[in-house]
Design a protein around this nucleic acid. Sequence first.
RNA 1: CGGGCUGUGGCGCAGCUUGGUUAGCGCGUCGGUCUGGGGGACCGAAGGUCGGAGGUUCAAAUCCUCUCAGCCCGACCA
Length: 571
Amino acid sequence: MRWSNLFIPTLREAPAEADAINHRLLLRGGFMRQLQSGHYSMLPLGWRVHEKIGEVIRQEMNAIGGQEFLLPAMHQASLWQQSGRWESMGDEMFRLTDRKGADLALGMTHEEVFATLSLELASYRDLPQIWYQIQWKFRDEPRPKAGLLRVREFAMKDSYSFDIDDAGLDASFDRHHDAYQAIFSRLDLDAIPVQASSGAMGGSASVEFMVASPAGEDDVVQCSGCDYAANVERATAALAPVANRPGSNAPEPIPTPGIRTIKALAEAGHPPEHQIKTLVYRVDGSLVLILLRGDHAFLEQKFVDATGAIEMAPAEADEIRSALGASPGSLGAVGVSDLTIYADPGLEGRSGMTTGANEDDVHLAGIDIARDIAVDRWLDMRGIAEGEACSSCGGTLTVTRCIEAGHIFKLGRRYSEAMGVSVLDAEGESRVPTMGSYGIGVGRAMAAIVETHHDDAGMIWPMCVAPFEVVLTVVKVDHEDSMAVAEKAHDDLVAAGIDVILDDRDGRPGVKFADSELVGIPLRVTIGPRGIDNGMLELTVRATGDQEDVPVDDLVERVTELVHEGRAVRL
RNA sequence: CGGGCUGUGGCGCAGCUUGGUUAGCGCGUCGGUCUGGGGGACCGAAGGUCGGAGGUUCAAAUCCUCUCAGCCCGACCA
């Protein structure tokens, strides 16, 4: 390939709307362009990387016995109605109507379609199966952001396992776990497997593969003393005991004019750990009270996971007032009996607490939770903070911002049952296969690589996914000897199966060096009169800046050697 | 959906507060000359319904109203 013939529109400055590093660099490097929010066009360089990432994924999926399919992106409504997700997916699913008036959806995932295909599985002898595809998914994200990290249209490798029993599912799950570690390792992504919430897809065991990056959207709790790692959405910690303050025989009203916040109340002599935080939420139509210790954060996802709530949102000020008679800032659960009260275990056994009195500008002190509050259900729903103690080893927990690069979980029989899948077992009994579901976003992996592999000059691609493995930079294109050497090296490298690009543009060397670094090609060979005269060429490693002089005659061999080494690297 | 912000040649910006000639600047692009190992210099040129609609006014990029789009922070997910 010759650079002069390719469409590689590099930009010196990133467009103002690009903020995330992957977004800025992929735009500047001419890898992609934004069509609209959450939808990106892949340009030749970007598509080459995308395809190479897909290829790594394919190889590892095939290695665990996966079989590649390609399913439709557009599905009839009835398919999703059968699983119940036509309703439960809500606004996240793109829906449209065809000319006959039939309802259609653009697939967000493909459990239903694969399960439909699995109707043709007839016997336990047909199991297990691992089926996968790399197909476009559509999700009407409320807020696309951070370049390729969160988009509305993206390629995902999704695979589905079908097993006769739980032991089989465990094995398929473990195979995927291994395959994912292999994939991320080859992509040079340091992905940590963490316990996760299974979210909208439903299921039991759920593991996310997380790559530390400030551009991410998830917080991962990790223990410094053992291998405990979990998404904050389901992380737990050992709570340091707090000595109760002296109580009283009954709640004591105290005037708190103008005090609306935990912080203000703390300044008035009631430390946060001795306060009860009272939140009012509307959950599937009903108001509920949610109680936590004053210094603990509420994590909605934990609540949703534990209660199975479909819709939840903070209650509006007016409905709070009509239910409790006060505004946020003075709310409490003492004496409340008509609303369901959820409390976090951090409050269990506590007394001498302060909380709102459900009367503006008044709080209650000396609260004994067991005595004064009619808790309906105790639920762990607090967010873990940096520095807390690990509940299994007592070590210190850290919280790290991460990109969710992959997610695997056990679905169970929910979909196979809904779609009417069954096979006969060895005894001739009808059995519903159990499923697993496993996803990796291809574009997101690409973004994650850029987020973790760049420097001031640009991207630094791992060899196995680089758009090109080596660039031959001709310093002076009208120097005939240079071009002759470059063209021969190019042809020989092509013959050796190396992805090589010949930068034959008639431009300033500085521009060509800068472009090759921005685009992130792992190896650069600089070809110019200075070196040619000595029979030497300069080989530069993008990642390290290391340079070595290579005799012209040894170039192809040396480059081939380095490329093969690079391709084989695993983290 | 709540909060904050931005739309002016391909990219980055100025101009807007206080309306007033032909809307500027840098980069990029095109032609040319000289150059040639880190975004070079000079000469010449092309390219803009100032996001859109409506309004105020003798006059609107600038003021008003509506609207569309994009970005960031929160609630949701590969």
